[in-house]
Simulated assay, not measured.
Amino acid sequence: MNVHGKIDTPDANEAKTALETLRAWAALADPVEVARLDPAIARLLPGHAVANYPDLSRQFDPDFKVDEAYKASLPDLQNGPASLIVGAKTRIEHVGISNFRLPVRFRTRDNGDLTLEASITGTVSLEAEKKGINMSRVMRSFYSHAEESFSFEVMEAALDDYLDDLESFDARLMMRFSFPVKRPSLRSGLEGWQYYDIALELIDMGGARTKVIHLDYVYSSTCPCSLELSEHARATRGQLATPHSQRSVARISAVVEPGECLWFEDLIELARAAVPTETQVMVKREDEQAFAELNAANPIFVEDAVRVFAQRLLAEPRIGDFRVLASHQESLHSHDAVAVLTEGQTFGSASLDPQLFASLVHRG
């Protein structure tokens, strides 16, 4: 039996002597022998690498060409067997890419063309026994149609491509962009560009397809109660008072009925007809006065807002199911007044996204 006594902690001089001894031995020893003792010893020798670590090139080779044989040798973990799945082996409803950008050409209602920067989200379903998807295929499918004037039909062609490539059952494609419309001022005759946040969404669930247009409409909401209280102060006490109003945002999501064409401009005009107090672009004094009069003629609670939007949507035969979200970002309160109204099954949900109303902002 070997009995080891307590080893005293060496001081700096003893450690230095031991290091010199180790270096002297390692400098003369076989590299394999050094590695067997401890590969880290090689790092103590000037100009030496760890013996069992490969000598890799650190220079990028711009002339290296990939041939088919080399490409076939590349590992592809996402298309690996189910045994590589990490976590629960369950179906994933949506997996893909979000917010890849490219210029997209759109046709306008007056037969013009607009090229706009679009943010694209493309996803597919993933069955429980599949490890993953090759996400670049979503982009490649979309790029193959990038030179066309976009419509729901072109989106369907892109979606068909990556559904086939990825061998999925369900898929979703969304394009977000800011759509410009020239708007006149109320009285001065000036004009300016109003920008509308719009998203086109194409959903394929088991072969059944749904086309949705989302529009953010920004308007001023004057509180009807505050308006009456202000008038009461004027009438009974001769007291000048102003009602509170605030910038407000409605997000209208409308399913386009099969075979119908709903232009962006059509949905914008529908929203403006429902709530005419849209925020203004070019304003002189006469326009500001006119806007005050327009607000006084159209005071509106958030409950009123979603209902008047719904009234117009229900009367439009090209629109099926819809949802209206509204947020009146109160100037009186330190909180917002919000409402949600849905028609049909497409947008029905027992739960709300925690950030749903926080997304109803005008970015300017």
Rank of each mutant, 00 (worst) to 15 (best):
M139W: 09
Q345V: 13
I133L: 09
L77C: 11
L267I: 10
Q246N: 13
I85Q: 01
Q246E: 14
F301N: 02
F150N: 01
E156M: 07
A235N: 15
A118F: 06
S83V: 13
L313A: 06
A18Y: 04
E14N: 03
A15W: 14
E33W: 08
E303Q: 08
D353Y: 06
A42L: 08
V256W: 05
K6W: 08
H145L: 10
H214A: 09
E191I: 10
A271G: 06
F301V: 04
Q239M: 14
S331Q: 06
Y70W: 12
Q78L: 15
A315R: 12
L215C: 04
F177Y: 12
I203C: 04
R307M: 10
K211Q: 11
G348K: 13
S136W: 05
L313M: 10
R91M: 14
R209I: 04
Y143S: 10
Q194L: 10
S73C: 01
H48L: 13
I120W: 05
Q345C: 09
S178E: 13
T277A: 02
T210L: 05
H94T: 13
S188T: 02
A273M: 07
I268R: 00
S125V: 07
E260D: 13
S230E: 08
F291W: 00
L325P: 00
V308Y: 11
S248I: 03
A82I: 07
S253T: 03
L313P: 02
M174S: 14
R363C: 05
L102T: 14
Q355T: 11
L37R: 04
A235Y: 11
H328K: 03
L270V: 11
T342F: 06
H4S: 10
E156G: 06
I300L: 15
I268W: 01
S98I: 12
A326T: 06
L352S: 12
D160W: 04
D287R: 00
A40C: 08
T236L: 15
L313R: 03
A171L: 07
L28G: 12
D170E: 09
V249Q: 00
G112A: 02
M139Q: 13
G192W: 02
D8I: 09
D76Q: 15
K6A: 11
T279S: 13
R247H: 12
K6S: 11
L22P: 04
L186M: 00
I213W: 01
L116R: 02
T17V: 15
R172I: 12
A315Y: 08
E191H: 12
T277W: 01
V340T: 12
I203R: 01
Y195V: 12
E293T: 02
D197R: 11
D336A: 01
A146R: 05
R234S: 10
S185H: 00
L227R: 07
F309C: 07
A88P: 06
N298Y: 02
C223M: 03
R58C: 14
F100Y: 08
Y70K: 10
D38W: 10
A35M: 11
L163Y: 00
R137H: 03
A128L: 07
P317Y: 08
D61Q: 01
H94Q: 15
I319M: 07
E303G: 07
W25R: 08
P180W: 10
V181Q: 05
K182I: 15
L114F: 04
L215S: 05
E316D: 15
L163T: 03
E228S: 14
L166K: 02
Y219W: 06
H333D: 00
A250S: 09
M282S: 14
P299I: 04
E68A: 14
